[in-house]
Design a protein around this nucleic acid. Structure first.
Lengths: 325, 325
DNA sequence: TTGTAAGCGTTATCAG
DNA sequence: CTGATAACGCTTACAA
C-alpha cells in the first residue's frame, strides 16, 4: 500500500542502497542520481517507515513523559516547556497521564520501556520504576522522591513550606489550615507539610492538616473545602499545597462573607505563569517551572550520552507577594 | 545488551516461535513449557521490542495529538480527556504542541506520518495536512476548519459568538470590544467573530476587533490589553475569545478602578472546568470539552475501522451566567 | 559512484 | 504441541 524504499528505487532505476543514501545524505552520490531519487520520492509521496529505522538503529528519538495530569497548570506549563525543549533537541514526546493510578503508571512503564522511548522524564511517584533502571534506560525524576539512583530535579519544598507558613503567621493568622495530598504517598508535598508542621510548632500553633486524594473531581473537592470552613469557624489562615486549591478555598470564603485578607489569609503553591496573571493577588510560592524543565532536560541529555550526573538538584523557590495574605 | 526473544528461547530450551506463542497466548502449549518460558523471561527481565513488533504488524497503537499548546486550560482539559479515553482503548499518545508555528507543525506531521502513529487528532489549523490524507491515515480535526474530507468535530462557534454578544448588549453595553486570534488564519474563532460582527450590526453598534497573535507571551498580551483600555476610554463591554484573555482584561479593568459589571461587562469563551471553579463569576460560553473528546474519539475509531463517517459534527454550547456581565 | 546481501527482533505460515 | 523459515522496511559492511 504505502510506498517503500524499494518502490522508490525501482522508479528511479537505482538500488535501495542508493535511495537510502540520498535519504540520509551519506556517502558519495552524483547530483544526477540525487535528483532522480528525490523526484521519485516526490512522485510516490514517500515517507520512510520509522519502525524499520528504529529496529535497525535501536533508538526512537522519543522521550516518554509520565505525569499525573496535564490539566493542572503546573504540570501543563512544565510539560509544555519540556516538549518545546525536547523538540529543539530533535525528540518527540509520548505522554502518559497517570492520574496517580498506579495500574496505569505500570502499564505505561511497561509499554515505554519496550524500546518505545530513548528516555523518560517522570513526575509520578511510581515505586515500580526501580526495577527498570537496570536496563539503564535514561530516566530523570521531577519533584518526586524515589530512593534509587535516578537523578531528581526538585524545587526546595521544605523552604517553600516554611516561607508560606511564616508569611501567614507574620500577618497575624493563628488558626492555619494546610491542605495537601494523600498521606500514604511519598510526594514532594510531604516536605512542604513537614515545614508547615515544624513552623507552626515553633510558633506554638497547632498544625491542622487536611489530606485530599489526588484524583477527586472538582466537585468533590469543593465539598471538602466547604466542610473545612464548617468544621473550623475560627479559621483565619490557609496554606494550600497548590494554587488551584488556594483559589477554590478563597472563592468559598468569599461566598461565606469572609474578607480576604482581613478575615482569612491565604497562601498557595506553584505560582505558574497562568495563575500569576489570572490571580495576581494570590500570595503563593513560585516554583521555577522553566528552570526545572531546563535542568531535567540537561540531566536527561547527559544520561543519554552516558555521562555521570549528580543524584539530586534542588532549585530555589520564592514568595510571590500578593494581597491574599 | 537487552535480552531478546532468542535469549529467552535459549535459556528455556525452546524455539523463538514457542516463546513468541507464550508471549501472545497463541496456539496450543503445554503448561510445562509456558512455565519454563515465563520463568526465563522473569530471569532475563525480558521486554519485547516494540519496533520489531510494529514493523511486522504495521501498526503502533499510538495516536498523534497535534495541538497548539497544552498550557491553555481548554486544550489541557481536552488533551487530558483524549489521553484518558485513548488509553482505555489501548492507545498511547504522542503529543505535538505546534504553538501555531507552521514549521513545527509540518515537522510533526512528517514525523508522525512516517508510520509512527495509527491515527491523528489535530487541533491546529495546518494546511499542509491536506497532502497527507491520501495515505489514508485516519485523521480527525477538532474545532479547526480544513477544506478537505477530514471529519471535523466542533462546537457551534457562530451561536457561541452570538449569545456572548447578545448577553453584553442585553445588559446595556454599547461600546463592546472583541479580542480574537490573528486575522489571516482560518480558525473557529472566525465564526465567533463573524457572529459578533453580525450581532453588533443588527443592534446598530460598531464592531471593534483586536487581533492577537497566538504565540505572544503573557507579558506582551498584558501590554496590548492595557492599550485597549487606553485607546477606548468609553469601553463598557468585552467579548474575549477565551477565558484567559477575559480574566486578564478584568484584572486590568479592576486595576484601572473600573467596576465589573457596573462599568465594564465581560464575557469569555471556553468555560473549562478549571475556570468555572476558579472564576465562577465569569460569564462565559461553555464548550463541551468532554463531548468533543468523546466524539473525536468515536469518529477516529470508526475511521480506524475503515467505516464511513460524517464530514462534520457540531456540538452545542451554552452560556454560563456569571456576574461579570 | 553504485549495488549486493546480511541483519535489526518479532510474528505467521507451514511442516512435523 | 513445537520448530524452521520467511517476511516486515530499513541501513550498513563489503564488493564492484
Amino acid at each position: 500500500m504505502k510506498p517503500k524504499l524499494e518502490d522508490v528505487a525501482k522508479l528511479a532505476n537505482v538500488s535501495k542502497t542508493t535511495v537510502s543514501r540520498v535519504l540520509n545524505n551519506r556517502g558519495y552520490l552524483s547530483q544526477k542520481t540525487i535528483d532522480k531519487v528525490n523526484e521519485a520520492m516526490e512522485i510516490l509521496n514517500y515517507q520512510p517507515n520509522s519502525a524499520a529505522r528504529q529496529l535497525f538503529q535501536q533508538k526512537t528519538e522519543i522521550i516518554g513523559l509520565l505525569f499525573p495530569t496535564v490539566a493542572n497548570p503546573f504540570f501543563g506549563e512544565l510539560i509544555q516547556d519540556l516538549e518545546r525543549k525536547l523538540y529543539k533537541e530533535g525528540y518527540k514526546v509520548i505522554i502518559g497521564n497517570s492520574m496517580n493510578d498506579s495500574e496505569k503508571e505500570e502499564y505505561y512503564l511497561n509499554q515505554l520501556l519496550s524500546n518505545q522511548v530513548d528516555g523518560l522524564i517522570v513526575g509520578t511517584h511510581n515505586r515500580g520504576i526501580q526495577q527498570y533502571q537496570k536496563d539503564n534506560l535514561p530516566i530523570v525524576a521531577i519533584d518526586r522522591f524515589m530512593n534509587t539512583d535516578i537523578p531528581i530535579i526538585e524545587s526546595n519544598n521544605y523552604y517553600g513550606g516554611q516561607i508560606a507558613t511564616e508569611r501567614l503567621i507574620e500577618k497575624g493568622a493563628k488558626k492555619i489550615v494546610h491542605t495537601t495530598g494523600p498521606s500514604e504517598l511519598e510526594t514532594p508535598t510531604h516536605r512542604r507539610m513537614q515545614a508547615y508542621t515544624d513552623t507552626m510548632k515553633k510558633n506554638n500553633l497547632d498544625p491542622l492538616i487536611y489530606h485530599l486524594d489526588f484524583n477527586i473531581s472538582y466537585e468533590e473537592k469543593n465539598d471538602i473545602f466547604y466542610r473545612i470552613f464548617n468544621e473550623n469557624p475560627d479559621l483565619d489562615g490557609i496554606f494550600a499545597s497548590n494554587d488551584i486549591d488556594a483559589i477554590m478555598l478563597m472563592q468559598i470564603a468569599v461566598s461565606l462573607n469572609k474578607r480576604i485578607p482581613e478575615d482569612i489569609k491565604v497562601v498557595g503553591y506553584d505560582g505558574t505563569e497562568l495563575i500569576r496573571y489570572l490571580y495576581p493577588n494570590l500570595t503563593t510560592v513560585v516554583q521555577p517551572v522553566k528552570k526545572i524543565a531546563d535542568k531535567a532536560l540537561s540531566v536527561l541529555i547527559q544520561r543519554l550520552k552516558e555521562e555521570k550526573t549528580e543524584q539530586e538538584y534542588i532549585l530555589d523557590v520564592y514568595l510571590w507577594e500578593g494581597t491574599s495574605s
